[in-house]
Design a protein around this nucleic acid. Structure first.
Lengths: 346, 346
DNA sequence: TTGTACGCGTTATCAT
DNA sequence: ATGATAACGCGTACAA
């Protein structure tokens, strides 16, 4: 560990023949120094291979040029995608992303968020509105500005960028209802510590209630957000009840798994629906339609979250809540109700 | 921005009635102080909602408890997955992940790596061995320890954790050859600034050469790593040449796209192969077999990268190169050569 | 436009 | 076991 301590700004200043503060200014805002001195400083920097010491810089300037993001998991492509967009937007603005995930555990979320704040992030990006009171309290005390994403804050207290998961889900269910479907099932992700999942299920129930329909308990399944889970969940549902004609899935991974199960059984569930969409996986529709998806602009969510946060850090005002447009994508093959699914085995 | 400056360690010390250094010790290593003083310090911490100032800590201790990761993109599930594993392992060890991506651009990679080093990361995790001389030089000068992942360094100079993409690809191709296939096509990811992609193609050529076979230019396609690209690439290949009986794809996204194209055309390409596997997407095999995959332990790569790096930071010695096992997964439906693919349209 | 000098909040060294 | 004090490397009034 006897790594020779690298060049400091003082060294740069000495080589360039200027004072420390001049060197500092030359790097912070080149317009503040004489062109000649600037080039001399730049030369010295190159010569020494000088790399600024972020910690010292952060300590003195009280900003780290760092933004923290806390996501449930990167294994869900939608979060990987929006995080990718977030990182890109931040990078272009000279900011660096500190990333943490919590696997849908509130305790972990608080711990990792604390770790990020401790690292001195200038701002935070969280997913959803469903966070423990302790977390909200911690955020308030720490004073770090934050953005909630993938949902809209119902109380309007917090800054957020997203969409109404409930309305989106309502919309897609209404569409199926308009096609004549009455026998619904739902494959949801786990709803604990997950407002998006809960809202999506609620949206289905809302739409059904408007038609005096209910979602029976045996047609509701909650599982992990993965293709494999989606597949086995639909399998279990169809084993229990083969009158089902429409399935609303909590996201595209679940929907894709459901499609696979249909394909394996050789049944054509008349309307296979995904509430959350991810461009690439939507192609799955071509394997085993019918599928209706709600296209969610994951990229926009990440990018706008970054832009909003940076704007706030720059002292600009931004609307507290911002809604991203969500688009219903209808497959050509989605049609009116046909004969119910039939089991192969059993 | 006149956010009241939060509690400092000095405040904690004052409230606890101890000196600054005692407070510091109580937090750094509780065993160093008297149990009574420790509880008094802890109480004061809770009372004030004290959160350590990472920058000051890093400045004084010369370590940031932060590790940087530079990946091509999180949009590729394999990197999302290994990054997720990396973040988890780091988090459990009290480290935080700084993440950056470069979209397969060498210039961007250098820039973001520099940004991470500037933020004071204690170590770095990179993907692959294919980095610009400038980057390697920068890493050497900065002295930051780093791990290369997803490949093995051919020269054995750098610390790495991964597998031989070339041998893996060779193996899968040999398997197809053993089934009697002779008419190969390859759908590869872009090979610029991507040693993994290049090695995978090379592995196919190696295997073919051993049978005195070549890969004609018109049966080779290079495209972006995505499902959509995989699909259209195979479409183009089949349009050109319908004698193809086996397709080796650069990764699972491409392979899945290829499967979709086969399904859409109603052809059964006798052996549809993916060189890189990702558990969930392997389920696609059930939609449109035949598919052979190489299962890669993405989680292990991320976790081991973290463990190796942290071990090195702790002064322990680790083998310079570590290979993760890669497993050939054969689908039941993969059989010997059948009649070639036939085009639907054209 | 440039330089001086102080402070940022913590750890580490050295006493006690 | 605890306390005083000197770094740590940089930003930024303030002065020149």
């Amino acid at each position: 560990m006897n790594r020779r301590t690298s060049a400091r700004l003082a060294d740069v200043a000495r080589i360039a023949g200027v004072s420390l503060s001049t060197a500092s200014r030359a790097l912070a805002d080149p317009r503040l120094v004489h062109p000649d001195t600037r080039t001399r400083v730049d030369d010295a920097v190159r010569m020494l291979g000088y790399v600024a010491h972020g910690a010292a810089r952060a300590l003195a300037s009280r900003r780290s040029r760092t933004i923290g993001a806390v996501v449930p998991t990167l294994d869900n492509p939608i979060f990987a995608h929006s995080t990718q967009a977030l990182q890109r937007a931040l990078g272009e603005a000279g900011y660096t992303l500190l990333l943490a995930s919590h696997d849908y555990d509130a305790g972990t979320e608080l711990a990792v968020t604390r770790a990020l704040v401790e690292r001195g992030v200038d701002g935070l990006v969280l997913v959803g509105t469903d966070h423990s009171p302790e977390l909200y309290q911690f955020l308030a005390r720490s004073g770090v500005p934050f953005e909630l994403t993938w949902a809209l804050d119902p109380d309007g207290h917090h800054h957020c960028i997203g969409f109404s998961n409930r309305l989106a889900s309502l919309r897609i269910t209404q569409h199926l209802l308009s096609l004549g479907h009455r026998e619904f099932a739902v494959v949801s992700g786990h709803t604990a510590h997950n407002d998006r999942a809960r809202e999506r299920v609620a949206g289905v129930r809302d739409a059904l209630a408007a038609h005096r329909l209910r979602l029976p308990a045996h047609r509701y399944m909650e599982t992990a957000f993965s293709i494999a889970s989606g597949r086995s969940a639909l399998g279990a549902l169809l084993d229990r009840d083969d009158a089902i004609t429409a399935v609303v899935c909590g996201n595209d991974l679940l929907a894709f798994g459901a499609l696979l199960e249909c394909a394996a059984r050789g049944v054509g569930v008349p309307a296979q629906v995904s509430v959350a969409g991810f461009d690439d996986i939507e192609l799955a529709a071509e394997v085993a339609p019918p599928l209706t998806t709600l296209h969610i602009p994951t990229t926009d969510i990440g990018r706008r979250a970054a832009e909003r946060l940076l704007a706030r850090l720059a002292g600009k005002r931004v609307p507290r809540a911002e809604e991203v447009p969500v688009e219903l994508v209808l497959r050509a093959s989605v049609g009116p109700v046909r004969k119910s699914a039939r089991r192969k085995k059993g």
